[in-house]
Amino acid sequence: MDFISYKRMPADLGTHQVDEVRYDAAGITVRGLLVTPKHSVERIVVYLRGGKGQVGRVRLGRMLQFTNTSTLVFGPYYRGNNGSQGRDAFAGDDLQDVIAGVEILKKMYPNVPVHLIGFSRGGIQGLLTFQAVQAASYIIWGGVSDMHLMYEERVDLRGMLRRMVGHPKKLPEAYQQRDALSMIDHTAPPILIVHGGLDEQVGIHQAYHLAKHLEAKQVRYDTFYQMGEGHIPRPKALSEVLQRIHSWMDEVERNK
């Protein structure tokens, strides 16, 4: 198992090579961005983007926030986006794009810890896949943890959700399939919850809801709340978040 093709991207980085890759995900050819250290790979971070279409698309600058000289970062575009075949299903069949990408990386770099980071919409993508891919840890950042809560709080997104997922009353099974919390138990890898108290895109009650569930299921988790920040932290707060994420991954690997 390997990526189907690599397309070198015009990024002049001294420590990493940047490629757009194509790969098979359950019979669909999808794409993602791969940032690979030029020397040894000692950590893999899979960045699960937020948004839809061009909103929240995978960007190199974002991925570089999670690198060091020995960290590989991969960001799947999701099917139906940026040249990937298929149709984006918002935590439906597109979950295979995450799983297949991680499986390829694990085969290429066996015994290297894999951490998932899910931002915004990527939060639910990660919650539904981090156990399946046996991630070392999962970081959910300003992330959706409950689709019903998202439907209720984001009136402006209800039309999009009805098109992509369905109406929660008319298609309850579609929302049940995306009920990540019901699938998480005490065997789950550790989770770091990052959220801004002033987040208007994904309310912080999504984080509280997740934390309460993890507590009940005796899952190891920690929180990093920035009560004065919104969906995207300001520069100083962003630096603090990234420091916490890097230290979290270090802690998890030390305590493995």
Rank of each mutant, 00 (worst) to 15 (best):
I140S: 03
L116Q: 00
N81A: 12
H213Q: 07
R178F: 04
P168W: 03
Q177E: 12
G75L: 08
N255C: 14
A11F: 15
G228P: 00
G122R: 03
M183A: 14
P172W: 04
H213M: 10
I232K: 05
Y151C: 05
P172N: 10
R234Q: 10
L127K: 04
F224N: 08
S84M: 04
L198Q: 15
L105F: 07
M63H: 04
W248A: 07
T36E: 12
H205M: 02
F3Q: 04
E229C: 02
I140G: 02
H246F: 14
Y77H: 12
T69N: 15
A25M: 12
G159R: 14
R154M: 08
G118Q: 02
A211R: 03
A91L: 06
T69R: 15
Q96W: 11
V112R: 02
G166F: 08
G166E: 04
V252D: 05
Q218E: 15
D19Q: 09
H231D: 11
P190L: 04
R43W: 03
S70E: 14
G166V: 05
P172Y: 04
H148Y: 15
I44C: 04
T15A: 15
R254C: 15
I4V: 14
E251S: 15
K106Y: 02
R154W: 00
T29H: 09
W248T: 07
A11K: 11
G228A: 05
H205S: 04
E200N: 13
A26Y: 12
D2S: 11
Q125A: 06
G166K: 02
L116F: 00
L72W: 10
A25W: 03
G56I: 05
S40D: 12
L64F: 11
Q218K: 15
I191D: 00
T36C: 13
Q243T: 10
R49K: 14
D199R: 06
V252N: 09
G159V: 14
V252C: 11
R31A: 10
V55Y: 13
D2M: 08
H213C: 09
R158H: 13
A188I: 01
H148M: 15
G203K: 02
H231A: 10
G50A: 10
V219K: 08
R162K: 13
G56A: 11
W141D: 02
I4M: 11
V202N: 06
I204D: 09
V46K: 00
H231G: 09
Y221G: 01
R79F: 00
E240K: 11
M249I: 15
Y138Q: 03
Q85C: 10
G126I: 01
H148T: 14
R8Q: 12
H167Q: 08
V202C: 13
V241E: 03
L60F: 07
Q201C: 14
R87T: 14
R79E: 00
